[in-house]
Design a protein around this nucleic acid. Structure first.
Ligand code: FES
Ligand code: FES
Lengths: 134, 134
DNA sequence: CCATTGTGGACTAATATTGTCCTTTTTGTT
DNA sequence: AACAAAAAGGACAATATTAGTCCACAATGG
């Protein structure tokens, strides 16, 4: 029940990107130094953000990464879902349990509702909002 | 971002206890068999529930465990908090980060709000409610 | 042609979770 | 008193997940 360190790296990275002038590329190395994130590990993380369509990359000498869309249209949910592929509070996925995940099961129903509530909250502020109100 | 298997064991155990006649003790062995949970692991888990004041125990020949208060007054939050000691979506606990957890930080503020929303949802139904509406 | 920067994959290390075993204490029963 | 049932407690082992590292390769601009 905890965001992983990798997710935190991703959040910090996205905030760094959101702070940069719109459209400018930042290099992985630069970000890793600024945010004190192991460079090679950060690279793997960025891959996930690329796949999720949150950042775009440019190889070569003046390359780097930048947001794929405006900071106003990215929220923490986007980042968290990108990194922790299946956000599932719910346990009842492993097969062979006494209580198989039937639509009606009250436990899984409650967990699902709680998860929704959480995600909805996280959708309320964009990266842009967050930078604004510090 | 996931409830652990141990937490699920605890939830299933609490439901089993809630189903039993009020005040009756069930043995760890019985529960472990009913719910297909490794007995010795279950014992460790029960310790946490005892510490949290959710169940009470009785040693000796007709002993076992039972709910420490009515099933109507126990929710999933109680169980989750008992087992996963510090429910903290929030990452910014580890020391020495760029973004120390200042009251104002927008990320930690958002995560905290989301966590609250989640916990609030989980508080809405008691074990009794859950057994009722299957 | 070369330095810079991202891509990809294999591998290792660290940590957390899950599971097991064994010994002790309490309690009711015989 | 002796015994069996059950919880308490703690050490240890097995797995799984997370985090971090390394190295060869591909694109890009100068
Ligand atoms: S579906 Fe798993 S506890 Fe009900
Ligand atoms: S306090 Fe950690 S991201 Fe802000």
């Amino acid at each position: 029940m905890q965001i992983t360190r990798q997710t935190e790296y991703a959040i910090r990275t996205m905030l760094e990107l959101a702070r940069a002038p719109r459209g400018e590329f930042l290099s992985t190395r630069y970000i890793s130094e600024q945010q004190d994130i192991p460079e090679d590990f950060l690279k793997k993380t960025l891959k996930l953000l690329v796949l999720a369509g949150l950042i775009s990359t440019q190889r070569g000498v003046h390359g780097g990464i930048r947001l794929a869309r405006p900071a106003g249209k990215i929220t923490l949910v986007d980042i968290i879902e990108a990194v922790e592929c299946n956000v599932a509070l719910n346990v009842c996925l492993a097969p062979g349990y006494n209580c198989p995940n039937q639509p009606g099961c009250p436990v899984s129903r409650n967990l699902a509702r709680a998860q929704q509530a959480m995600l909805n909250e996280l959708r309320k502020e964009s990266l842009e909002d967050m930078l604004g109100d510090q």
